[in-house]
C-alpha cells in the first residue's frame, strides 16, 4: 500500500515524503505550525515554519525559537514536496497547510471559521483531493448568528449593566477571542480593562491590528474606577479572588459552547454569548464542499458523528486521533 501523503503517528501529522510534521504534539525536527494556540504550537521542536503574523505569537509564548515565516499563498518546497499556507480565519496568523506531491493535493485545516471576523485574514477554501478538517462544533445544534448581531447584543448588555451600576466581566480566550471582542466592543460606552494575560497578548498583536485602548488591571485599580466599565478576562479568572475587585459585577462568556444552556449554568456564568472562532455545522459542511475534495479526515471534535454524516453525503470520510483540545473556544 502506498504511504499516504500525510499520516497520523504518535508525534503528530507526518509528511514522510518531505520528512516534516504539521502541528506535532511531541518534539520533532521540523514542523509547520497552523496557528498560535498552545495545543497546535507546542514547545520543543528544532525548527518552526509558520505564517508571518504567527511569529510574534509563537515568540511570545515559547521564547526565542528557530522560526521561518511565510506569507499566505507563498509556496515553498521541502524534498520535492510543495507546501503553502492559506488563511484559516481562526485567529490572527492562522493558516491552513496545503501539501502537493506528484499531482496529489492535501489540505490540513488546523482550526478555522468561515465568517470574516474583522481581525484576521478571512478563510479561503483551497481546492484539494483530501481535506483534513477539525469538527469542534460538528453537530447540527451549532448555528452561529452573524457576528454583527452578537456584538450588538454584547454592547447592549454592557450598556444595561452600566445603567444598573454594575461592572461587566466578559470571558474569552486570551489569544484570539479576546482581540476579536476588543475589536468590536464599543469604546464610547466606557473604558475597557484587561486581565494581565490578555493585556500582554494584545500588546504583542497591536503592531498587526488596530485595537481600541485598554487599561491593565493592577493592584492599584479601584472598584470605583472599574464600575460601569468592561473587563476582559480569560475564562480561568472566573471563580478566583481576582474577580472580587469588580464587585458589583455581572459575568458573561463568549464561546460557541454557550449554545448549550447547561454549559452556561455549569460554569455559573450570568450570560452566555454564542460567538466562536470555529465553523458552525453549516460552515463546516459548506467549507468542505467548497474544497471539492473526495476524501475527508475528521480530527478533533464530534469526529465519529460528523464523519458518519459526511459518508452519507457521499464523501470518503474517516476519523483520526490527535492531541488537539476538543473543548477549546
Amino acid at each position: 500500500m502506498k504511504t499516504p501523503l500525510l499520516a497520523f503517528n504518535s508525534k503528530g501529522i507526518y509528511c514522510e515524503a518531505a520528512d516534516v510534521y504539521i502541528d506535532a504534539w511531541k518534539p520533532v525536527d521540523k514542523v509547520i505550525i497552523s496557528h498560535g494556540h498552545a495545543d497546535h504550537s507546542r514547545w520543543g521542536h528544532q525548527k518552526y515554519i509558520t505564517h508571518h503574523d504567527n511569529v510574534p505569537i509563537v515568540k511570545h509564548r515559547l521564547g526565542e525559537v528557530n522560526i521561518e515565516s511565510k506569507a499566505y499563498g507563498e509556496s515553498f518546497t521541502i524534498n520535492n514536496v510543495k507546501f503553502s499556507l492559506h488563511p484559516a480565519g481562526h485567529i490572527i496568523g492562522s493558516a491552513q497547510v496545503r501539501v502537493e506531491h506528484k499531482g496529489e493535493v492535501w489540505v490540513f485545516s488546523g482550526d478555522y471559521k468561515d465568517e470574516a471576523d474583522g481581525v484576521c485574514t478571512p478563510f479561503e477554501a483551497v481546492p484539494c483531493h483530501t481535506f483534513i478538517t477539525e469538527c469542534t462544533f460538528g453537530l447540527p445544534a451549532f448555528k452561529w448568528k452573524p457576528q454583527a448581531e452578537v456584538f450588538e447584543e454584547i454592547n447592549q448588555w454592557w450598556k444595561q449593566n452600566q445603567a444598573d451600576g454594575r461592572t461587566s466581566v466578559l470571558f474569552g480566550y486570551s489569544l484570539g477571542k479576546a482581540q476579536r471582542l476588543l475589536k468590536h466592543l464599543n469604546p464610547e460606552i466606557g473604558k475597557i480593562y484587561t486581565h494581565g494575560a490578555i493585556e500582554n497578548m494584545t500588546e504583542v498583536l497591536r503592531s498587526l491590528v488596530d485595537f481600541p485602548p485598554t487599561h491593565l488591571i493592577t493592584r492599584e485599580t479601584t472598584k470605583v474606577e472599574l464600575n460601569g466599565n468592561l473587563v476582559l478576562a480569560p475564562p480561568s479568572a472566573h471563580g478566583g479572588t481576582w474577580i472580587r475587585k469588580m464587585t458589583p459585577y455581572v459575568t458573561a462568556s463568549a464561546s460557541g459552547w454557550m449554545t448549550f444552556r447547561g454549559a452556561r449554568r455549569r460554569r455559573a456564568i450570568d450570560k452566555g454569548f454564542v460567538l466562536s472562532d470555529h465553523c458552525d455545522w453549516n460552515g463546516l459542511i459548506n467549507s468542505i464542499k467548497a474544497t471539492g475534495c473526495e476524501k475527508v479526515i475528521c480530527t478533533h471534535g464530534y469526529t465519529d458523528i460528523f464523519a458518519k454524516y459526511l459518508r452519507e453525503l457521499g464523501y470518503d470520510a474517516r476519523t483520526e486521533k490527535t492531541q488537539y483540545e476538543e473543548n477549546e473556544d
Binding site: 453537530l139 447540527p140 445544534a141 451549532f142 448555528k143 449554545t259 448549550f260 444552556r261 447547561g262 464530534y302 458523528i305 458518519k308 454524516y309 452519507e312
Partner: peptide
C-alpha cells in the same frame, strides 16, 4: 424539519441533553 437524518438528531439530543433545547437548536431559525 431540520432536514437531518433521525440518527443525527438522536446523537445531537444525547449531547445537548434536553429534547426541547435540541429541537429549538436544530430546526431552522
Amino acid at each position: 424539519l431540520a432536514n437531518i437524518p433521525l440518527w443525527l438528531f438522536e446523537e445531537s439530543y444525547h449531547i445537548v441533553g434536553d429534547l426541547a433545547e435540541t429541537i429549538a437548536l436544530v430546526v431552522p431559525d
